[in-house]
Amino acid sequence: MLGVCRARCGPARRGATAPAYARRVPSGPRPLAPTYQQRRWTLPPDAVVHHGTVDDAVALLTGRTVTALTGAGISTDSGIPDYRSPDSPPRNPMTYEQFVGDEAFRRHYWARNHVGWQHVRRTHPNAGHRALATLEAAGVVRGVITQNVDLLHEDAGSRHVIDLHGRYDRVVCLTCGRVISREHLAERLTALNPRFLEDVLGERLTVADIEVAPDADAVVEQTSHFVPAPCELCGGVLKPEIVYFGETVPRERVERAYAMVDDADALLVAGTSLTVQSGLRFVRHAATSGKPVVIVNRGETRGDPLATLKIDAGTSETLTALAAALVGG
């Protein structure tokens, strides 16, 4: 998974927002990648990590402008599970090759996404998202680079956001490049599969009672009868506008992210294990440039040895405390 990212875009633009992950796949080719549990990275025993507190972070960041880099951990308090916390279930990432090359994989993905999307679109920003928006409004945060596809930073009021891996609310045709809203596709999928949601829910009260991953992939076992929707314009294959495992983030987006890091005096990392190169490269870039790096995350991250300061805590309470100290209120 190193050197590639997850998912949110289609071949027309080759990249975009978040990966399509499926814990189980239909009969057919075996998954091409090991589970996230197997991919978890651990710090070498001789690694030096500079742990600290919110007060230490305040002292380090006072008088400095900041670029924020966020991951799935910042959205857990909004009800969206992360990928790599100790209690997260193992997941097999669906690759771009699987999605475009096998109709069974596409059917499996869209069936699960049709369920999970109903949950993710109803989530709301939490205190961590709002704290970063507050810091941006005060001129402390230059912008946010997020590995998430949930758009909660934008919903919280952040104006300068780079959705590194794309966005879950758009769908692209791999043949003609037409982009449509995920809401419009949901209407079509419901029409093609009129009782699917009811059958999946069964006795459960809401979609929230079903396990859902950060990219809106819900744990649904029976998907072989699901009918995906083709492009209305050309009949081509539709794909979420997210960067899948096996795809790369569009170069233009990466360059904008580097420029955002360069534009600030420090880098604040929140809610990501930095396991994949997609996010870690910005931490390396900031550290190499001599910029202070503050990491806020529960548990180890791959960037800990590069951090000027590591705070092992939740993002909501920590970012709220930072905002209160740096801008008041």
Rank of each mutant, 00 (worst) to 15 (best):
V4C: 02
C5F: 12
A7M: 08
P11R: 14
R14Q: 12
T17V: 14
A18G: 15
A18Y: 12
A18H: 06
A20Q: 14
R23H: 13
P26H: 14
P26K: 04
P26N: 06
R30E: 15
P31Y: 09
P34E: 14
Q37S: 15
R39Y: 03
R40H: 00
W41L: 09
T42K: 09
V48G: 00
H51T: 13
V58Y: 02
A59L: 04
T62S: 13
D77L: 08
P81H: 12
D82A: 03
R84G: 15
P86L: 13
D87R: 11
P90Y: 08
P90M: 11
N92I: 10
N92K: 12
M94C: 13
F99Q: 02
A104G: 11
A104P: 10
H108F: 06
H108C: 15
H108G: 00
Y109Q: 00
A111R: 01
H114V: 00
V115T: 01
R121I: 07
P125Y: 10
A127W: 02
H129M: 14
A137H: 12
A138F: 05
G143I: 01
G143Q: 08
G143L: 05
I145H: 05
I145D: 00
I145Y: 02
T146P: 12
T146M: 06
N148T: 11
H153D: 01
R159Y: 05
V161G: 02
G166C: 03
R167G: 10
D169N: 13
T175A: 15
T175Q: 15
G177C: 02
R178F: 05
H184Q: 14
E187W: 03
E187R: 12
T190E: 14
P194D: 07
P194F: 10
R195S: 14
L197C: 01
V200T: 09
R204W: 06
R204E: 14
A208P: 01
A216Y: 04
A218Q: 06
H225R: 05
P228C: 07
A229Q: 10
P230T: 05
P230W: 04
E232V: 12
L233Y: 03
G236R: 06
G236K: 08
V237E: 05
K239W: 06
P240V: 13
P240N: 07
E241A: 15
I242T: 14
V243N: 13
V243A: 15
Y244H: 09
F245W: 12
P250H: 05
P250N: 08
R251T: 15
V254S: 00
V261P: 04
D263M: 08
L268W: 10
V269A: 13
A270E: 07
L274G: 08
S278Y: 07
L280M: 13
F282H: 03
V283H: 04
V283N: 06
R284T: 14
T288G: 14
S289T: 13
G290Q: 06
V296Q: 01
R298W: 04
G299D: 08
E300N: 09
G303C: 04
G303Y: 06
G303S: 10
D304T: 11
A307P: 01
T308M: 02
L309G: 00
S316L: 07
E317S: 14
T318Q: 09
L319K: 09
T320V: 10
A324G: 11
L326T: 05
V327I: 05
V327Q: 07
